[in-house]
Design a protein around this nucleic acid. Structure first.
Lengths: 335, 335
DNA sequence: CTGAAAGCGCTTACAG
DNA sequence: CTGAAAGCGCTTACAG
């Protein structure tokens, strides 16, 4: 493998001159530059990333910290990882995966070994143990998720409250005065799933403001149980003819539960939902909905992180991604 | 951040002695070792991974190359990525993500910049363009997937032929003489999805050997279309009362198609399937099946890759992971 | 505008 | 068993 010394020799210049044309720092005579570029091409030279990192104290890599529970069951994770890698590559950064059964250990080791210039933490929840190693250190990091106390760390997330507002408004404008709010199980709210809390609070507030009443159903985990529960609720006499859904498992099973109950959308039931974009694709969900915005969220996260790497001492930032309503004709107008 | 020089000073020894206790290469007097270890603890010292990499020419990181098409639609990808990262971490390696809309570009750059010691290529297909940058270079790599021509690169995959054998045998032993073989669309076989080919060929051979006849149905893409097609085939007069499935979309929709057709499993239809483990969990599939073995496949891939990094010149290896039959009472005995 | 020198934080022969 | 020195492949002041 050719080194910068080989290139310098081939071009008949000093190594520092090669370095100068490599990273465009200094002005180099066009003719000299040409000689260097020819030598680089001839020798098929590439900068050794590790050597550059040692000299600059910049690894040009970011670590993405996957929540250890997340690995279990998550069609969305890959989308975020690939999007992160693409976004980072666009800025000349690499992405290294930080996973660990033991949670904060992977973060601590990566930071200590100076393997990464910054961190992206996926799916941050309240009191997330992965924050421990970096809180107070000023190490550049950005959370995807929005815990109540950001502890001085930058954060990006979809604006779940605004999403709830869009969906409730959509039902209200269609004339619905009552809706079943199919939501996550209570444990999730208790465990600090802040997106769930933000959605639920906003949904209740907006519904109240709109004079709409909400029947809440906390859905369990597991496709079969969800399907059975939903079918039972749908069949109940006097059930509202609109559904507001914030629960991926429920959204996925809802078409089948509706089928089980012999109900058509939108003729018999209007449905709106907030769920992950991957879920919508995987199950071809036919509902008017607000979807997660992995590309936008990741784009902002990388942008914030790189800014933070460049300016570690600026005030922490929280950024909410504006949700969009995707219309799919699952809401009928009521008189 | 403390350096090895700080530790040496603190312990009153030479840097090389610190290095020796760090990587246990040389014998160090117990008392000296203790002084060094105390200094390390006191200064909270960690080796700078980049500096070590420069000195040893070993980055201790492996690149995982994600097929650019895969990002689109794949609940299984995250499982493989997390499993890879866990397995690599267990051997002291990091994992960096190599994605690129332009396919081989990411591989070429990572190798040229000496960012990685080796590569894991996920979901390799026939004539995979990601192989181009490394074929013939001897750069350590292992494919997950088993193209017809391995081009000198190590490969690991589930033994799809053996999986087909297990499933056909299971139906045959239960007395079935005919089955509908629900398979992938023709395009997939044409495009070089070698797992599909290996399964199909083995299924036909084994069925013939068992005196079982197979009605083949190539399933299209898209949940709704799959569901409709399956329901139609299931209702047909004289349709076989057993199904052999190798198509994830079809497996996912089959419970619903059976429901649409008013058929019960196993009373009306026996079903066996080979599909991804993630799919089985996500949809709670109730079929006796052979599932992908992400943990075993990834374990073997990492093992082969590390061996290859240590011995670049040994002959290429192909390893098949033995499939297991998971019984779920979806097959009834016929007389 | 160009080049010689020092340094980034390690490891590894090689003397002692 | 321990230590001084050279080197890994870069970048960056600093002279010229």
């Amino acid at each position: 493998m050719a080194t910068i010394a080989d290139v310098a020799r081939e071009a008949g210049v000093a190594r520092s001159t090669v370095s100068a044309v490599l990273n465009g720092r200094k002005l180099v005579m066009p003719e000299t530059r040409k000689r260097v570029e020819d030598a680089i091409a001839k020798l098929d030279y590439s900068v050794n990333a590790g050597a550059r990192a040692l000299a600059t104290s910049r690894t040009m890599t970011i670590g993405v910290v996957v929540h250890f529970h997340r690995a279990e069951f998550t069609p969305a994770l890959a989308t975020y990882l690939v999007a992160l890698s693409d976004a980072a590559t666009g800025h000349g950064y690499s992405v290294t995966l930080l996973t660990d059964a033991d949670g904060p250990g992977a973060v601590r080791r990566a930071v200590a070994a100076r393997r990464v210039d910054g961190l992206v933490l996926l799916d941050v929840v309240e009191n997330d143990p992965r924050l421990e190693p970096i809180v107070g250190t000023g190490f550049p990091a950005v959370m995807i998720g929005m815990p109540h106390d950001a502890r001085g760390i930058d954060a990006v997330d979809l604006d779940f409250a605004a999403g709830a507002g869009l969906l409730v408004d959509h039902l209200a404008r269609a004339g619905h005065r009552r809706a079943t709010f199919v939501r996550w199980p209570d444990e999730l709210y208790a465990a600090g799933g802040t997106h769930a809390l933000r959605f639920a609070e906003a949904a209740r507030d907006r519904a109240a403001a709109r004079g709409m009443s909400l029947d809440e159903v906390a859905c369990p985990v597991g496709p079969e149980r969800v399907r059975a529960l939903l079918a039972e609720r749908l069949r109940r006499a006097g059930a509202p003819d609109a559904l507001l859904v914030h629960n991926d498992a429920a959204a996925a099973m809802l078409p089948f539960a509706l089928h089980d109950a012999g109900l058509r959308v939108p003729q018999d039931r209007s449905v709106v939902s907030l769920h992950s974009a991957e879920l919508a694709r995987l199950y071809a969900l036919p509902f008017t909905s607000v979807e997660s915005e992995p590309d936008a969220v990741v784009h902002d996260a990388v942008e914030l992180l790189l800014r933070r790497i460049g300016a570690p001492d600026e005030r922490p930032v929280a950024r909410l991604v504006t949700p969009r309503l995707v219309r799919r004709e699952s809401v009928a107008t009521r008189r």
